[in-house]
Amino acid sequence: MIKNDYKFYILYILFSGVRGDSCNRVSYIRRRICAFKGSSVDIICTYNGYNHVTSKFWFSPERSRQWQNPSQAEDLSKDSQYSGRVQVFETETGRSTLRITDLRETDSAQYHFKFITRAFEWRSSLPGTTLTVTDPDLQVQVIWSSVGPKLVCHSSCLPPGRSFVWYKNETKNPEEISHVYSGYIGPADSYSCAIEGYDRYRTFPVYVPKVPLVLMSNTGDIMKETSVSLTCSSDANPAAKYSWYKNHKLLSAGPQLVFISIQYSDSGDYYCAAKNELGKTVSEHILINVKYGPRLTNISVSPSVEIVEGILVTLTCSSDANPAANYTWYKDNRTLLQGPEGIYHFAPISSTDKGMYHCKSENPYRQINSTSLFLDVHCKWK
């Protein structure tokens, strides 16, 4: 490994023309620079000519096809593609700065500095400074750790000499300049970041999901065997993942809960949860009460043995319904009694009560008659 390093050093000397402190050489302050579209950048080099420098300029080998003589580098400040956007200046002897403003993606290239003395022309083939111009791709990454969420301001491009800026609830936090947010991350707060000097490229804020909103496909009563869907949505960044609960038990994952043919057994208390890497919130509870009309109306008699006048007899009408049914009793098609209980008492029964009985059950959605029952009352022997 030492031998390879030594060989590279010898090659560097040969290509750069190093001959001591007074030798001809160009050194670039940064080999690689990344910058945002629309911004400006300074590309800096230092140079030394052991004789008087008669000419110096910046150029880009990538533009060689546009040169009048491709074998001869041309001054970048005279290139029409950079017209009005290039400035070259020296703040001290032997230090040149190329400033490019209003950067475009087509400016992504390698930039070299060239100088000519009375006896020497710098023609080094060693790399210059490579500039990459890109759209800002800043984003706040949320990483979960054993102590909770961690926020990282990530960008594939970091302009030189810049630190990061963090915002909490739209207010800049001057103490946070690292790419990792070090403060407490509150569940009710939002966080965003930018690169110093490029506030217009600030990221969208990240935050815990807001209280989810639940929308139901049905606006009126929910009838048995109809189709019903519940949709959960929440404002969140990163995007939320959803789950559904019935009576506090996990049902399913996903933003939508669908009943193709809802049953009475599906009645219950429902809510959804929205969760991202920063936290979790739940919606308001929704009570689903599946309605249906009466069905299977039945009559029973007690006692069920031979009925003799003078004893206590009860007729009972029952039906499955939601809401609960009201009942009407009939004897030989004559109305006897109406009420929610469905019970008709004979106290005591007499021979005149002999006849044909039936009941009707009804709620707002349906009414249905039972089958008829003949009640035979026998005389009591003395």
Rank of each mutant, 00 (worst) to 15 (best):
Q367D: 11
S64H: 10
N48W: 02
I288F: 06
V88C: 05
W58D: 03
D75F: 03
V211A: 13
F59Q: 04
E196P: 10
G186S: 14
S40Y: 08
P159V: 04
N247E: 07
V290Y: 01
F113Y: 10
Y181G: 15
S145E: 13
R32F: 14
S217I: 15
L213Q: 13
Y12P: 12
I260N: 14
Y344K: 09
Y47E: 01
R25P: 00
K224T: 13
S16H: 14
V165W: 10
N369Q: 08
K246M: 11
E196C: 10
S55D: 12
Y181I: 01
K331S: 02
I177W: 01
W244K: 00
S243C: 01
L11I: 09
D5T: 07
P149W: 04
D42S: 14
Y6K: 15
F113P: 00
V18I: 11
R295M: 03
Y264N: 14
F89H: 08
P136N: 04
V26K: 12
D189C: 08
V258H: 09
K210S: 14
W244R: 06
S80G: 12
V377A: 00
W166Y: 04
G197M: 04
Y82P: 02
E362I: 01
G186E: 11
G94I: 03
S146K: 15
F59T: 03
S261C: 05
E62W: 09
K56Y: 07
I262R: 01
L98N: 00
D320S: 14
